[in-house]
């Protein structure tokens, strides 16, 4: 359940931002979560409300943008999209893939008061 630890990190970033940017309430949080980031979005949603209790984002709405996994297929020498790490290249079936994107988790946007 490291989704909970991730929610705690989000809370920390929001609290820091509130101090820096001078707001008191976050009404909406938009995250970008990579398909290969190792995070279960359902678990993240579940943990979010609990982790935000008593924070500036206690009543915030959570929006999640799912970023597809990107990889470079070495045999095909072209960029492809993969949904999971154990998936082969959809064109040639090879597993010789270098992941190039969709591993990150970022906070994209905050709507604040």
């Amino acid at each position: 359940m490291h989704e909970m630890a991730i929610c705690e990190s989000i809370r920390q970033i929001l609290e820091d931002q509130a101090r820096e940017a001078g707001f008191t309430t976050v009404t909406r949080v938009k995250l970008a979560i990579g398909a290969l980031s190792g995070v279960e979005i359902a678990a993240l949603r579940f943990g979010f409300d609990v982790a935000m209790q008593g924070s500036v984002a206690a009543t915030a709405r959570l929006e999640i943008e799912e970023v597809p996994g990107q990889a470079w297929c070495m045999p095909c020498a072209r960029a492809i999209t993969v949904a999971a790490r154990y998936e082969p290249c959809p064109h040639c079936g090879s597993y010789q893939l270098q992941v190039t994107g969709g591993e990150d988790m970022t906070i994209r946007e905050l709507e604040v008061v």
Binding site: Q17, F23, T25, T27, T106, I107, R108, E109, V112, V113
Partner: peptide, 24 residues
């Protein structure tokens, strides 16, 4: 415990590119 203050009514949008695991 953080402080939750009922705000005034002006909302604004903050664009960020904060890595959630950046602190780690």
């Amino acid at each position: 415990a953080g402080t939750s203050v009922p705000g005034l009514s002006q909302t604004r949008l903050i664009q960020l590119e904060a890595d959630i695991l950046g602190k780690n």
